[in-house]
Amino acid sequence: MRRQRKKKQKKIEKEPVIIKVAPFGIFAFHKGKLVKKELWKEKDAAGNFFKRDEMLKEFKSKIPIRAKQEIETLFGPEIEKFAKKNGIKFNFQKFMIEFTKLKIKAGFSKDKLIIQSINMLEELNKVINILYEKLREWYGTYWPEKVEQVKTIEEFIRIVGMKREGQSMGFDFEEEDLEIVKSFGEELKSLLSLREKISHYIEKIMTETAPNLTKVAGPIIGAKLIAIAGGLDKLAKMPSSTIQVLGAEKALFRHIRRGTKPPKYGVLLSHDLMRKVKQKNRGKLARILASKISIATRVDYYSKGRDIIWKGLIEDINKKLEKLQ
């Protein structure tokens, strides 16, 4: 008897099993009858629907009937009809909010953090320059002879706020006058160390997410290109002629609109190699760099940072550079 029943179950049915995947669960029908269902709680619905392929795989293995399976995804006006018919409470708007949240979360990637960081670094540079300039003036009214000798910001933050020695044409500060200058000096110092920190951070995540681009363009220029393009994905899809002039949008649109001379380079101008060639060859070098950057970026994006090809690209660049020099 038992054996017979087992045999019966194994029989493959002619009629297919219809599996309906809805935002509130999965349902299997056979010959018009519900044979298996999995209802999701409201709070899990969006998450489960988001990974529905996984959920479906598990569900399929639990269906008691052996037959061809046809899968339908329920979405749209049918959802509410289906929910009503089967007595399921379902709020499509709330579901879409949760579902969209998951999509937003999943759509974020590390290269977007590069954009935030490089933008912050640029702002930080501006702030540091302004503060440095003003503080130099301020402290210079007290000890002009010392400030005159100091040429770099690194030297300046070491001496700012110090009590002066020897004769000076500077104004005699009282304790409180010097104290406030000193406080600003300390803040400037900590801003410099913050700049160091964020530069290291950018270099690190650039090397992780776009190793080839980082080697060919340099971490900062590479990051700027990603930021202007709006992401590593977008940069990877750009033609190298666009990459060549990224950062020179103003000049480019002036050219398109009014027919002025087109720009030859944007952020690529600050590439280290640019200093090695004459002014008249910089456009050519920008074109060479852009073409290799474009290849590097595509490899980085499509291999998810795993394939390393930058050595060959840099060799190519150096060969072409020799001809320009």
Binding site: F92, Q93, M96, I97, T100, K101, K103, I104, G107
Partner: peptide
């Protein structure tokens, strides 16, 4: 938009 839709129940966000 999500924050607005959480208040206004007739707005359905679609990314």
């Amino acid at each position: 938009l999500i924050f607005v839709a959480e208040k206004k129940e007739n707005m359905i966000p679609i990314l």
